[in-house]
Amino acid sequence: MVFGTHRALDSLTLEVPPGITGLVGANGAGKTTFMSIVLGLRTPTNGSVSVLGLDPLRQGAELRANVGYGPERNVFPDDMPASDFVKHLAEVRGMPRSEARSRASDALWLVGLGEERFRALGTMSTGQRQRVKLAQAIAADPSLVLLDEPTDGLDPVQRDEMLALIRQISSEYQIDVMLSSHLLEEVERICDNVVALDAGQLVAQGPLRELVGDVEGVTVELTEIDDVPGSVESVVARLTAAGLRVTREPDANRMDVLGASADLIADAVRDAVADSSARVRRIEQRRRRLEDLFEVGAS
């Protein structure tokens, strides 16, 4: 996807399976452009797209009737009651009027705004507005819901509740969800699949359990006490001498130790630390996180 001389998405080839998919990347990574292409609002410079078996460009209206969308922008008609807002968008997505009314009410109950459904949107808190966005996205019984930064502006408790709602939508109502987020931690918490973008390039894609989780080796973080300078270097030297591979940033106290089972490495670390008079701050099974995908991509 090219805008003038700027290449917003480049050589993107991917297939997204059902479930919750996290679209991750920094601002400007191409997440919003990707969503626009999925909705058929932008035409890729070349290549093809298929969503729910439909071509977004040629069958856009049919596709979008089956897709719910929660935009990032948090601005609504302030003087409109939440129920009218959700009902109207359900109607625009093809629901008959009476069905739209009852589904709007149901959707607002499901997101926890049943008692507040007749309140004007302008009087609602940021958390309530995010819930209204979710309600309007699911009210017309979509097969797929696209959510752009759905936890933006929420406090930790509200964020947990929102993530639980999204999980519920996927697991209980069988609606596939694609959520865009720059918060990798929340994607790790609820997503089944990940699409990681960086500067328009695909960094990684696949099931979350294959991209993150426990990997070979142990992560060790040491502390050097003042009266034993060089103790961390000594630990590294002892581990290397024992036939283990140690990777660390220069002068860093955190290192990854590989080359044996986790138990053997832990024993070797214990002995090396005891002989070098360093102190252990943390020792744990080495784990790959989403941010590691971006480091690999950058390197």
Partner: peptide, 27 residues
Amino acid sequence: RGYRRFDGRRSGVGGAIRSTAWHTTRS
């Protein structure tokens, strides 16, 4: 009632235009 699936006929583009026009008129 929980969440209900909808297996009826959607009104399509014509319904979307009607609904938007009526909503605009009210507004």
